[in-house]
């Protein structure tokens, strides 16, 4: 099932990756990559493992720096920001990690409060509680508030991870393999959640995945990373309407013909 696409203004760019390259030692991961994310758009980045998809979103959030090129996020050049400016920009970017990255020594409530109490120090206890409950309700896990991360299932951990990023009301969401390692029904729930987040919080998102069912369900546009470059982009059908031997196996594996 494909989603109803929001109206996208091509002038309203929230992320502009321009000519970016990244290597680790002799290993060239990304070569002169260009990418634009428009406001309120869900952009899916497809590609094989090890092609630099996660590296790309880590560079967008400033966790890694590119070797060359420019990355503009919400009008600010990430590579030129000071540590403090970067920290401020990051409050507007939500990052959902592949393994959820929940703080395992804290309860769900403490996990959700953590970014809030550190970045909005003037909030009262009641306001913090309300925010936590609100965001937990948004991901459908109000009952898990006092549980430890180790007591949650993989799907629940993903949801809490997403809730933790949403608590700061980001403008941009970056999802790293949101459905990896989950059963089909939970995948469907996570996909619906990604669409709900877009509709409810008006976010623009980059979703890294190689799960085509997820890509089809959540994407407004897709790009495919091949050999360190974005070589194909468009809708789901435009991407896979090809005989390219590097692309076809993706489709064949996910939707056995």
């Amino acid at each position: 099932m494909e989603k109803n696409k929001p109206v996208i203004d091509p002038q309203d760019v929230v992320i502009h990756v321009d000519n970016v390259s990244k290597s680790f030692g002799d290993l060239h991961i990304l070569r002169d990559v260009d990418l634009k994310l428009y406001n309120r758009e869900n952009l899916v980045v497809l590609g094989r493992s090890g092609t630099g998809k996660s590296v790309l979103i880590k560079m967008i959030s400033g966790l890694l720096m590119p070797d060359a090129g420019s990355i503009r996020v919400l009008g600010q050049e990430v590579t030129a920001l000071s540590e403090k400016e970067l920290q401020k920009l990051r409050l507007r970017i939500g990052f959902s990690f592949q393994n959820s990255a929940l703080y395992d020594s804290m309860t769900v409530r403490e996990n959700l409060e953590f970014p809030l109490v550190r970045n909005k120090r003037n909030l009262s206890r009641a306001e913090i509680d309300r925010e936590v409950e609100d965001v937990l309700e948004g991901v459908g896990l109000s009952q898990a508030i006092n549980q430890m991360p180790s007591e949650l299932s993989g799907g629940q951990r993903k949801r809490i991870g997403i809730a933790r990023t949403l608590i700061l009301r980001p403008d941009i969401m970056l999802y790293d393999e949101p459905t990896a390692g989950l059963d089909p029904i939970t995948c469907l729930e996570i996909n619906n959640l990604i669409n709900d987040v877009q509709a409810r919080y008006n976010t623009s998102s980059i979703i890294i995945t190689h799960d085509l069912a997820c890509a089809k369900q959540v994407s407004d546009r897709m790009v495919m990373l091949l050999d360190g470059r974005f070589e194909r982009q468009g809708t789901f059908h435009e991407i896979f309407d090809t005989d390219d031997a590097r692309v076809k196996p993706f489709y064949d594996y996910n939707f056995i013909r």
Partner: peptide
């Protein structure tokens, strides 16, 4: 990394 991206 999660701490860093959440502005902490």
């Amino acid at each position: 990394d999660a701490m860093e991206v959440s502005g902490t």
